[in-house]
Design a binder for these strands. Structure first.
Lengths: 235, 235
DNA sequence: TCCACGTTTCGGCAGCGGCCGAAACGTCAG
DNA sequence: CTGACGTTTCGGCCGCTGCCGAAACGTGGA
C-alpha cells in the first residue's frame, strides 16, 4: 500500500467488458439512453442500469433526465482522453477484440455524430473535400478554400450565415469506427442538414444511423467527385 | 461489436489491485525484481509471478533476466503515458488512496513525457511561455503567437517544418505530479530535443528522469524569463 | 384512470479469477 | 555436489461480481 491515486479501482471500472462497450459507444460524443447502451453492451437493461450507476458515481459519466429517458454522456474531456489513451495503447499492443455481436452495418456505414455526418460516409466526404481542394488543412485547423466556399454556396449553404456564428465552421472530428477524421463544425452540420432536406438520407429514429436511399447514395457519391467531372446534379 | 481495440481487457489488466500496485511502483522508472514487486503489491511471490507474466504477455512490461533475478520495467513511453493519464483521472474523480508523496525527487523535478518535458520544469516552462505571451491559450487550444514563433525560430526550431507535420504543434498535457499543464505536441518535443542537443539536460537511461546540468539549469531558467530582460544567451 | 414503456431495485445463481501452499526449476556460492 | 535463494508452475479453495428474472417506480399517452 503506497501513496497515490487509486488507479486500480478506476481501471477495474473501465475493465469490465459491458462497461467498456458502453464507454466506447459514448466516445462518439453523443448522449445515449440507458436502453441504447444496454444494446451496445449486449446486456439486459437491468444489468446496464447497474453499470451506468457505477460509472456515474465514479464521475466518468454524466446523466441527464429527460422524461422517462435517461441520457448518459462522457463526463468530460479528461475522461475521453483517458479512454483514448487506453485505446491507442490497446491497439499498439495488438489487442483487437473479435467479439461476436449484433452490431448493425448501417451504423458503421453512416451515422450522425452530434449533428454532422460520421462513419464511412463521413470520412469519405472529408477525404474527398480535402482531395478536391475544397477544404484546406493548415496548422490553424480546417478552412474552406475559395473554390470550396463557392461550391458550398452553390450547394445551397449560406456560408455568410455560418461565418457569422460563434461556432467554429470547420472542425475535424475523429471518427470512432474509422479512426480517421470527418467534418464537424457548423459546415458539417449544414451539409448533413442539406442531405436530409434533399431526401438523400434520413436519420434513424431509434439509433444514430443515417439511412441513405439508393438515389441519395448515388447523388452523395456524385457530390464527392472532383468538381471537374461532376455533372450539374447538385442544383 | 465490430472490431476495434480491446479496451476492456487492457483496463481489466491494469484494474487488479496487485497489478496496479506493481505498475505504480514501476512508474518511477526503475526496473524492479519480481520479489520486490511482490512486496510492493502485498502478495506472495508466486502470485506476483503470475501477474507479471500476464503483464509481460500483454506488452505492458519488459523483463530482463540477470542471473537468478528478473528485472521488470515499463515497456515503453506509451504505457507510462496511459498510466499517467489514468492516475490523473483517478485523482480528478477523487479516488485517492493516500497523499501524493514526493517519490523520486529527480522524476518530480524534470522528466520526459513521451518526447517532451514534464515535471516541475515542464510546468514552469509552460507557465512562462504563456505569461510571456509566446503561447496563447484560446478556445481552439494552444498556439504560438507571432512573437513566440519568432522566438522559437531564433532558438533554432524549424517552425515551418513543424507546421507541415500532421501532428499537432501545441498541446497542453496535464502533468501527473504537478496537476497542471505542460507543453506537448511537436513544439514541446522540438524544445526538449533542443535542450538535450545543447547539453542543458540529458535523459536518464533507466528512468524517464531528465538530469539538468548546473549550467543547463541556469540557461533554461534564463530562457524562461520575459524576452525584454533576456540577454542574448540563446543564439 | 389505466396501460405501455423505460428504468431501477432486489434476490439469487454461477463463473471467473485472484490467492496461497506445495513443489519444481535454475542460478550462485561454497 | 550440496544447500540457499529467487522464481515459476501446479492445484485447489474461496470470494467477488457480473448476470438475469421478477417486480417496483415514474413518466407519458390514450
Amino acid at each position: 500500500m503506497k501513496e497515490g491515486p487509486d488507479i486500480a479501482g478506476l481501471a477495474a471500472l473501465i475493465g469490465d467488458p459491458a462497461r467498456a462497450n458502453m464507454l466506447s459507444a459514448l466516445m462518439a460524443g453523443k448522449a445515449l439512453t440507458a436502453g441504447e447502451l444496454a444494446g451496445e453492451a449486449g446486456v439486459t437493461p437491468q444489468t446496464a442500469s447497474g453499470h451506468l450507476a457505477r460509472l456515474v458515481d465514479a464521475g466518468l459519466l454524466l446523466v441527464e433526465v429527460q422524461g422517462r429517458h435517461r441520457y448518459y454522456r462522457i463526463a468530460g474531456p479528461d475522461v475521453a482522453e483517458a479512454l483514448e489513451t487506453l485505446l491507442v495503447l490497446a491497439e499498439r499492443t495488438g489487442r483487437v477484440r473479435a467479439r461476436p455481436g449484433p452490431r448493425d452495418e448501417a451504423m458503421r456505414a453512416a451515422r450522425r455524430c452530434y449533428d454532422h455526418l460520421a462513419g464511412t460516409a463521413g470520412v469519405a466526404m472529408f477525404d474527398a473535400l480535402v482531395a478536391n481542394g475544397d477544404l484546406t488543412v493548415g496548422s490553424d485547423g480546417l478552412a474552406p478554400s475559395a473554390a470550396g466556399r463557392a461550391r458550398f454556396v452553390a450547394f445551397g449553404i449560406d456560408m455568410d450565415e455560418l461565418e457569422g456564428r460563434r461556432r467554429p465552421m470547420c472542425r475535424a472530428c475523429l471518427d470512432w469506427s474509422e479512426r480517421r477524421p470527418h467534418l464537424a463544425g457548423s459546415l458539417g452540420a449544414a451539409l448533413m442538414a442539406a442531405f436530409v432536406s434533399r431526401g438523400w438520407a434520413t436519420p434513424d429514429r431509434k439509433t444514430r444511423a443515417m439511412r441513405f436511399t439508393d438515389k441519395g447514395r448515388a447523388e452523395f457519391e456524385a457530390f464527392l467527385r472532383p468538381a471537374a467531372r461532376r455533372h450539374v446534379a447538385d442544383g
